[in-house]
Structures are given as structure tokens and as C-alpha cells.
């Protein structure tokens, strides 16, 4: 009886409002509501027993203007927080200029997850295994947050602090992620590759993203490498990047970048893989990501998602 009473009380304390603009959403969040868009983390997490659904919810899924992919004044790309993975993996600009982000978006969950799950939710969930994280970091991703006192911009490297944790305040709404323009001084290519036991409905056991720029003579003039599911947060690996710059971007250089990624990794052991296995695979997956980015920089066609086609490289 007491259980039934408490359940009734709990149900009556639940609230839901749908915001049609950012200010309404931020006001609701200031009053304690949690934002919900596709629900593919929040609701599924509740179903798994990770955390109960918050009593107060504010629907942000229909706020106009947050679902656009558009160029920035600086030649980069602004991706609205409500842009879905399905949109990203098919967006012509993303496919042409940021294919690593398409690689990642194309392997998130199932087609239903991709059709509903948003980039904003993915970023704010702050999972060290999120597939889009490494490509976003490699492209200088910046979170645009709006709170009660206005807008602020935070580099993703400064946003994520641990699994499920970020430096965003509870009343700050992510409205967009902005990426840098492609590196100047040559042709660039990008990729994201993950170790996966199956091609869909999977979470990265290990992942790596790379952006490589080649000079006119084919020498690597710039490199960005980030690793996934290998530390409490997704992060860049300066040693891997240094191992690539000035080289021909060939197998030995990619192998050195992979070895540096393995050395930088601080993986955990869990049901999907042991720490030792993850560290060993960090070298392989980072190498594959680098080689794929180099191939794309050279103008070769590598199908999206790259993870399905890079075995053996």
C-alpha cells in the first residue's frame, strides 16, 4: 500500500513542457527540468536502470533553428544541437569535407537511434565511448551553450571531464557545435574507425579519429588524432600527431602514431574488453584511422563508414 501511494505521488509530481524556443527551455532547466530531444540516451538509460527518468522534463525536439547544418563565417561548420546522426551521415558537406564525422554518425546504434538521436544529446551525454567525439575534437569542436545569462563557447576538450560529466551547468542548453575550417596548406582527409564486434547496435570497444593534411609533395603537414573508449574522456594524442608530421603518411608513420596512442591510453577492463586488449587494439585502430585519413587526403575513395572496410590495414 505504501508502495502504491509513493508511486502515485511520484507520478503526480512528474511534469513535462514542450519548449518552442531556447529561452523557454533554459527557463525550465533553471527551474530544475532536464532537456529531452531524441530520448535515445535519457529514456533508454532509464529503461536500463542507469538512472530514473527525471521528474521534470522539457521537450526541446521542436525548437526551430537547432536542426541546421550550416557554414560559419570562418569557413567552418555549425551543427545545430538537434541535428540527428541520420542527417549527419547523409549531409553533402559532412561527407565531402568532414567524412570522419560521417563515419562515426553512420555506426551509432540502429537506424532508429540515428533517426532520433541528436548530436547535442550525444555531446552532452559525455560518454568516453561516443563515436562522434573523436572527429569533433580533431576538427576543433566548440560547444555553444546558452544559459540564463547568455551564451558562452567551450572547447569540447574543456567540456568533457569524465564519463557522464561535463563543465556545463545544469541550466545551460547546448545549441550547436562548431567545427573549424579544414586545415589550410594542402589537401586534408579525415576518418573515424572503431573496434566493433558487430557492425550495428554496437558501442566502441576502442575508437580513433584522425585528420591529416598533406602538402603538395605528399608530406604530412598537419595531423590531429583523438582516441575513444581509452580514457575517462575522449582526448587528442599529441605524440601520435607529432609522429605523423613531416612523414610520408605511410604504414610506418601510421604505426608509430598507433604506438603513441597505445602508450597514451588509460583504458579500463569491462565486459566489452580488458584494459590490455584495449591498449593493444588502440595501436591497431589508430593506425587504421590514420591510414584511412591519408587515403582520403590523397583523393582516394573510402566508403562511409570506414570501420566496415579497414580490416587488415
Amino acid at each position: 500500500m505504501s508502495t502504491a501511494t509513493s508511486m502515485t505521488t511520484s507520478a503526480s509530481s512528474r511534469t513535462y513542457v514542450e519548449a518552442r524556443d531556447v529561452a523557454t527551455a533554459v527557463a525550465a532547466m533553471s527551474a530544475g527540468a532536464r532537456p529531452i530531444a531524441g530520448g535515445t540516451d535519457l529514456v533508454v538509460g532509464a529503461r536500463h536502470g542507469k538512472a530514473p527518468l527525471p521528474a521534470a522534463l522539457v521537450g526541446i525536439h521542436r525548437i526551430p533553428g537547432l536542426g541546421d547544418v550550416a557554414p560559419t563565417d570562418g569557413g567552418g561548420l555549425r551543427i545545430g544541437a538537434l541535428v540527428t546522426h541520420a542527417t549527419l551521415m547523409a549531409d553533402p558537406t559532412v561527407l565531402a569535407s568532414y567524412p570522419g564525422l560521417a563515419d562515426a554518425s553512420a555506426i551509432v546504434g540502429s537506424h532508429a537511434t540515428r533517426a532520433n538521436g541528436t548530436l547535442g544529446g550525444n555531446v552532452m551525454n559525455s560518454s568516453p565511448a561516443m563515436d562522434t567525439g573523436a572527429p569533433l575534437l580533431c576538427h576543433g569542436g566548440v560547444a555553444v551553450l546558452v544559459g540564463p545569462v547568455g551564451e558562452r563557447r567551450v572547447a569540447l576538450a574543456d567540456l568533457w571531464t569524465g564519463p557522464g560529466r561535463s563543465t556545463a551547468a545544469p541550466d545551460e542548453l547546448l545549441v550547436a557545435v562548431e567545427l573549424d575550417a579544414l586545415p589550410a596548406g594542402g589537401a586534408s582527409g579525415s576518418s573515424y574507425v572503431r573496434l566493433q564486434y558487430r557492425r550495428q547496435m554496437e558501442i566502441a570497444i576502442v575508437g580513433a579519429g584522425a585528420v591529416v593534411t598533406l602538402g603538395a609533395d605528399g608530406t604530412v603537414t598537419g595531423a590531429k588524432v583523438a582516441i575513444t573508449a581509452l580514457a575517462p574522456v575522449i582526448h587528442r594524442v599529441a605524440e601520435s600527431e607529432a609522429a605523423l608530421v613531416g612523414t610520408d603518411g605511410g604504414f610506418e608513420a601510421a604505426k608509430a602514431a598507433g604506438a603513441a596512442a597505445a602508450a597514451a591510453a588509460r583504458p579500463i577492463s569491462d565486459v566489452r574488453g580488458s584494459a590490455d586488449y584495449r591498449r593493444a587494439m588502440a595501436a591497431v585502430i589508430t593506425r587504421r584511422a590514420v591510414l584511412t585519413a591519408v587515403r582520403r587526403a590523397r583523393g582516394e575513395s573510402v566508403p562511409v563508414p570506414a570501420s566496415d572496410t579497414t580490416f587488415g590495414s
Binding site: 529514456v43 533508454v44 533517426a115
Partner: peptide, 27 residues
């Protein structure tokens, strides 16, 4: 499964495939 793994609950919402077990009716 009631947590978006099995797809038996799949519906279209405005044409998008949705695991309806894990989607709130209010949305």
C-alpha cells in the same frame, strides 16, 4: 526488450523509425 535493442516496438513518427518503447508519448 523495452530498451531499444530488439525493435519489436518500431513505429514511424513523422516518417522516422522510432523504438516506441523508449520514446515518450508526450514528445
Amino acid at each position: 526488450c523495452d530498451d531499444s535493442e530488439c525493435g519489436a516496438c518500431m513505429m514511424l513518427v513523422d516518417g522516422r523509425p522510432v523504438n516506441s518503447c523508449s520514446y515518450l508519448a508526450v514528445q
